[in-house]
Design a protein around this nucleic acid. Structure first.
Lengths: 236, 236
DNA sequence: CCCCTCTCGATACGCTGTATCGCTCAATAC
DNA sequence: GTATTGAGCGATACAGCGTATCGAGAGGGG
């Protein structure tokens, strides 16, 4: 039965052992490794070693590595603060969006997983419920499909934006300089391409743009999206 | 020098060989494999085998597997039709967005890579240039930073939305049924969770939502985003 | 014609996720 | 109290990965 979810299966009872194990312990160890060295550091061997166990011992708690990744994602969803009931829809969605962004900054590997797999963990479900509930029942969003459309759009933007931000941060870290520094200073290939004159607008970006603070860029994009939703869902 | 890009290095001259090789051949073979069996099928061994070569022969043309992935992404960017110069900004961005979506439907692996790495290939650059040029110079977008903000927002949405669509498509394929079918019919875990009453809005989604055609959902989301941009950038 | 150099790709290394299955130990039956 | 069974744990093993290494072989110069 390939459809069975981790969350369907009870955890095995904890046995007396010199090094006790549990899903929580496993997930925490995996998250710690991922925070420190990226997803590449999360191998079953390394996670098990961090818990003084052999690799196969983990298979009592999870069935595949993918399940471990699912649990990690759900754990991060649990860290995200949800808006209090009664919060305005715009404030509520904003709070959720910046919460996801903050979580992704804390756990860069999060963006590699979220949005690429179905979200079915309890924390993910709570998160979805809260997002939808922020809009549901309001006169501006008469049907559940309106709610879904709006929330889906915001989530798509947030996931895309956050993934892009992290990708840029990684590139900067691995090259040791800011993207525009890199483009402006060295990057013989980029320089040659820009020198062809084929990319006038791109050149303007590289040489003229102000490169606003990334949080501000995110906020501006988010307000675009929320504005667009508002214009179509403003009470008459 | 870790910053050196593939596109900086010339391809080695083609040697007389029973099985000639080139970057194009390698990339085409890799894309074919990825289209058929997902990114997991793209191993240097398999790509090389598809070209009747040993794995290490590829290293004359690429330096790492990541470079191959970069080349694959750039190839797909090359498939995306760009708006003719002079197209209105809204039409232009729409055309680009649906172009990316179509490409991602043809090459599902595309969503796993795009947005997660810097885009520096010639086709990617052309694509960025065209996107920016669609807005640049218009009175509604007085500075290059306005242009960047608007294009970045649309791209973030498109990447996030497309990734989500593909993720859902994969989940449906692997479970053999539609998401809502799955939730409604079986999914003992989901059913149990919904039965707790903790997720009233989610339950409404599962049982009441219409589940509109995914292309329509994408278009609606895109028009939200474009509307939001328009409201802030409408000439007075 | 010989020797040197340089290139290419077969071999090999360390790593991955996980299937297999012998061992260990607890519980049951007598 | 002892013998037998059952289950489950985890060491071992396997197939595959990306790629570093380095010996063989080809091509050019003397």
């Amino acid at each position: 039965m390939p459809n069975e979810l981790v969350w369907d299966r009870p955890e095995p009872p904890s046995k007396p052992s010199p090094t006790p194990l549990s899903r929580d312990l496993i997930v925490s160890a995996a998250i710690r490794l991922a925070d420190e060295g990226g997803l590449d550091e999360v191998s079953l061997r390394k996670v098990a070693a961090a818990l003084n166990a052999g690799p196969m011992r983990l298979y009592g708690y999870i069935e595949t590595k993918d399940e471990l990744l699912d649990l990690m994602v759900d754990e991060v969803y649990g860290e995200i603060e949800l808006p209090a009931p009664g919060t305005g829809w715009r404030e509520g969605l904003t709070q959720i969006a910046v919460g996801i962004r903050a979580a992704a900054k804390r756990h860069e590997w999060f963006v590699d997983l979220v949005g690429g797999r179905p979200r079915r963990g309890p924390n993910s479900l709570r998160h979805m419920e809260a997002s939808l509930a922020t809009l549901a029942g309001r006169p501006e969003f008469p049907t559940i499909d309106h709610v879904l459309g709006a929330v889906g759009t915001v989530m798509a933007f947030v996931h895309g934006a956050v993934r892009g931000e992290v990708a840029e941060a990684r590139a900067e870290r691995s090259s040791g300089m800011t993207e525009e520094q890199w483009q402006r200073a060295s990057g013989p290939y980029i320089e040659r391409m820009l020198a062809t004159g084929e990319f006038p607008t791109l050149a303007k970006v590289v040489y003229d743009a102000e490169h606003t603070d990334s949080a501000a860029v995110f906020d501006i994009g988010l307000s675009y999206v929320l504005d667009g939703i508002a214009t179509r869902h403003t009470p008459a």
